[in-house]
């Protein structure tokens, strides 16, 4: 019987790496659920839309510029995507 070919790739190492990637992809930040970056992007967009609409309804007529809201939304979005 021939010697089994030496595995080119160390399967266990690959496995560990894969798990690490998976852990990086889906993790727990300050949000109460496990998320990957796509989920966080979605959450950021959801919150952004809600904030902008509420701002248009209540704060803009009171004289607060909408651009303040855009800045707020961008900052909040960045925080959620990076740390969520």
């Amino acid at each position: 019987m021939a010697e089994p070919l030496e595995p080119v790739i160390d399967l266990e190492a690959v496995d560990e790496e894969a798990q690490e990637v998976a852990a990086r992809a889906a993790r727990r930040g300050f949000l109460p659920i496990q998320t990957n970056w796509f989920d966080r992007l979605f959450i950021a967009i959801y919150i952004a839309v809600a904030l902008i609409l509420l701002w248009m309804r209540f704060l803009e007529p009171a004289g607060v510029s909408i651009y303040l809201c855009y800045v707020l939304v961008l900052v909040l979005g960045a925080v959620i995507i990076r740390k969520g």
Binding site: I33, Q34, F42, Y46, V49, A50, L53
Partner: peptide, 22 residues
Amino acid sequence: IVLYLTLVMCWMLYVGLVAPRN
């Protein structure tokens, strides 16, 4: 906006469904 509202509700329920399992 209607699509947005539907998606938000859909997503929140989905999270409610999946989160306890995780």
